[in-house]
C-alpha cells in the first residue's frame, strides 16, 4: 500500500477539502483497488509554494491558484477573462480540454503532472454599502486579488488594496476596504455575510479564477504502470468537472447563507443597466490578453474562442 500525501490549504471545511479531495481520494482508492491511499496534510506553507513543494517531492500532490505565481502562468488567465458566461463546472471542462489541445506544449506546468484544471465560481461585487451602478465604484477602496481583477479594478478606477483573502473580513469590518471582488461562496466560507451586506451579482459574474490540481512526476514514476493509469483514469476532465461543480455548489450555499443572514443580493438581469455597463467596461480585455501571451507561441485567439464555445455549450 502506497500513501499519496495531498498538501492542502484553505479551511478543512471548504468544498475543495471537504468534497473535491475526499471524492477523488475515494476514486483513486477504488481504481487502484486500495493499493494507493490518499492522506491530507495542512499547514505546509503558502499556497503559491505548493507548486514547488510537489515538484521537489516534499509532498506528493496539491492544488494552487495560478494567479499566485504571475509571470509563470499566463495562458491560464484565458479562462479568467470576463464575459465567459458559464458555470465553474462548464468553464473547468473547457479549461481542461483547451489546455491539452493548445496550452500544454508551452510547458507552464513544467516539473508537474497536471491532474485537473478548474475555476472557482464567477467573481461578484461584495460591498459594505449599496451601489447603484458600476460608476459608483470609482475611488472606492476595493480589495483585489491577482490576475484579471487588477485590470478590472483599473478600468473601474477603484483604489486597489492588496491583502490575502483571510484578511478581508477584518478589513471590511474596520472599513479599511469598502468592498471586495470574490465568488459568492465566500459569503459563507470567509463569513463575509457578517460584514459585506450588499452584493451585486452580475449575470455570469465578472471573471473566473484558474486553479490546478497536480501531482509529482517522481511519485507517479514510483507506482506500477497499472496504478499510474488508474490514477489518470479518475483525474483529467472527470476531476476538473467534479471540482468545478463542487465550487459551484459552494457558491449556491454561500448565496443561501447570505440571504438567510439578511444580505441584500442584487441579481442583475442579462439586459440590466449594470450588465450593459460591465460589457462596455471590459471591451477589448480578451484581445489584450491574446497580445500579452504572444511569447508563448500558441494560438491563443483560437484557444479562447474554443474555450468559450465549449463552456457555453456544456451540458446543453
Amino acid at each position: 500500500e502506497t500513501v499519496l500525501r495531498v498538501g492542502s490549504w484553505l479551511p478543512p471545511t471548504h468544498a475543495q477539502n471537504a468534497v473535491v479531495w475526499p471524492t477523488w481520494a475515494k476514486w483513486v482508492e477504488e481504481a487502484t483497488e486500495g493499493r494507493v491511499k490518499v492522506e491530507m496534510e495542512y499547514g505546509l506553507g503558502h499556497p503559491k509554494t505548493m507548486f514547488e513543494l510537489v515538484e521537489d517531492g516534499a509532498v506528493d500532490a496539491s492544488f494552487s491558484y495560478h494567479g499566485y505565481v504571475p509571470g509563470r502562468f499566463k495562458l491560464t488567465q484565458g479562462v479568467e477573462q470576463p464575459l465567459m458566461g458559464a458555470s465553474a463546472e462548464a468553464a473547468s471542462v473547457a479549461h481542461w480540454r483547451v489546455h491539452n489541445k493548445y496550452f500544454a506544449k508551452a510547458q507552464e506546468h513544467d516539473g508537474l503532472e497536471v491532474l485537473a484544471l478548474f475555476t472557482h465560481g464567477p467573481g461578484q461585487i461584495h460591498m459594505a454599502n449599496p451601489i447603484n451602478s458600476l460608476a459608483d465604484l470609482k475611488s472606492k477602496k476595493i480589495r483585489l486579488g491577482g490576475g484579471v481583477q487588477g485590470e478590472l479594478g483599473k478600468r473601474m478606477d477603484v483604489t486597489a488594496v492588496g491583502a490575502p483573502a483571510p484578511k478581508v473580513y477584518e478589513m471590511m469590518q474596520q472599513g479599511v476596504i469598502d468592498g471586495v471582488f470574490i465568488p459568492m461562496g465566500e459569503q459563507k466560507s470567509l463569513r463575509l455575510k457578517e460584514v459585506a451586506k450588499h452584493v451585486v451579482a452580475l449575470p455570469g459574474g465578472m471573471y473566473l479564477g484558474s486553479f490546478a490540481m497536480f501531482i509529482s512526476p517522481d511519485f507517479m514514476d514510483g507506482l506500477s504502470e497499472k496504478d499510474r493509469e488508474a490514477i489518470r483514469s479518475v483525474s483529467g476532465e472527470k476531476l476538473s468537472a467534479m471540482a468545478g461543480a463542487a465550487w459551484d455548489a459552494a457558491d449556491k450555499e454561500g448565496l443561501e447563507a447570505a440571504l438567510a443572514d439578511g444580505v441584500s443580493v442584487n441579481q442583475v438581469a442579462e439586459d440590466g443597466a449594470m450588465a450593459q455597463e460591465f460589457r462596455d467596461l471590459v471591451k477589448g480585455m480578451d484581445n489584450e490578453w491574446v497580445a500579452h501571451v504572444a511569447d508563448r507561441k500558441v494560438d491563443a485567439k483560437a484557444a479562447l474562442e474554443e474555450l468559450r464555445e465549449i463552456a457555453r455549450s456544456y451540458g446543453k
Partner: peptide
C-alpha cells in the same frame, strides 16, 4: 480584539468572527 488568531480560528471552524 482585533486578533489575527481569532480570525483564523473563525475561518478554520466556520465560527462567527464577531
Amino acid at each position: 480584539p482585533p486578533s489575527v488568531i481569532l480570525v483564523i480560528y473563525g475561518l478554520l471552524t466556520e465560527t462567527s468572527i464577531r
